[in-house]
C-alpha cells in the first residue's frame, strides 16, 4: 500500500507541475511521465504475477509514455509553437486553483463511504484531483495541444479510480477501455494536425466561425 500511495502522490504532484508549466514540451513531458507512473501501479497492486496485468501495464506505459507524447510533439513541431502564451486562466491562478482542488479532493473523499481496504489509499483523492486538473487545463488553456494534455490528465484520473475496481472488473473490460481511450487520443491527435493545416494555427480561440 505504501508503494502505491507514493506513486499516487507522485502523480498528484505532477498535476501541479502540469498546471504551472507554460512551455508545451514540458507539459507533454509531464503527461507522459504521469502515464508511466500510472502504468506501474497495477504491477505494484497485484501481489502475484499475471500475464494479462503485465500486458496491460506495458501497453499503458507504451501508449501514454511514448506513442501519444511523440504524436503531440510532432504536432507541436509542425505547428512551430512552444508556449501557451495567452491562457484563459493564468498560470499562477490555475496553480492556486489546482492546489485548492487537491485539498478539496482529499476532504471530499473523507466524506465518501469507502471500503476499509481503501481508507488509507490515496487512489480516490488522487483520482478526483487529476480529473479536476484535467478539466482545469481543458477549460483554461488556449492551445489545442495543451487541451489534449488536459484530456490525458483527465483520463489518468479516471484510470486511477478504475484501479479501485481492479480486483473485480474482468481485465478484458479494462483492456477494451484502454484501447478505446488510446484510439480517442490518437484521433484527437490527427484532428489537431488537420486543424493546424486548415487554420495555420493551433489556437482554439480562432475556432469561432461557428457560433450563434
Amino acid at each position: 500500500m505504501d508503494g502505491l500511495n507514493l506513486l499516487v502522490g507522485l502523480a498528484m504532484g505532477l498535476n501541479l507541475v502540469a498546471l504551472g508549466s507554460s512551455r508545451l514540451p514540458s507539459l507533454i513531458q509531464v503527461a507522459a511521465v504521469q502515464g508511466v507512473v500510472l502504468g506501474v501501479m497495477p504491477l505494484v497492486m497485484e501481489p502475484d504475477f499475471r500475464w494479462m496485468a503485465v500486458l496491460i501495464a506495458v501497453a499503458t506505459m507504451a501508449m501514454k509514455g511514448l506513442v501519444i507524447p511523440a504524436l503531440l510533439r510532432r504536432a507541436m513541431r509542425t505547428a512551430n509553437i512552444d508556449r501557451d502564451l495567452n491562457p484563459l486562466i493564468g498560470f499562477v491562478p490555475s496553480l492556486l486553483v489546482g492546489a485548492a482542488g487537491m485539498i478539496a479532493a482529499v476532504l471530499l473523499t473523507r466524506q465518501l463511504p469507502l471500503l476499509p481496504e481503501h481508507q488509507e489509499s490515496l487512489l480516490a483523492p488522487g483520482a478526483l484531483a487529476s480529473v479536476f486538473t484535467g478539466l482545469l487545463l481543458l477549460v483554461g488553456r488556449s492551445k489545442a495541444i495543451s487541451q489534449v494534455c488536459g484530456y490525458l490528465i483527465l483520463e489518468n484520473g479516471i484510470y486511477l479510480f478504475g484501479l479501485l475496481l481492479i480486483h473485480s472488473t474482468p481485465l478484458l473490460v479494462e483492456g477494451g477501455i484502454l484501447l478505446d481511450l488510446t484510439v480517442a487520443v490518437f484521433v484527437i491527435g490527427i484532428i489537431v494536425d488537420r486543424i493546424q493545416r486548415a487554420f495555420d494555427s493551433l489556437d482554439t480561440r480562432k475556432l469561432t466561425v461557428l457560433r450563434e
Binding site: 481543458l138 484527437i188 486543424i195 486548415a198 487554420f199 466561425v209 461557428l210
Partner: peptide, 14 residues
Amino acid sequence: AYEATWKYLLVGGT
C-alpha cells in the same frame, strides 16, 4: 468542418 469536429471531440470526449 474541422472546427465542428474539434468541438465534437472535446465536448464529446469529456
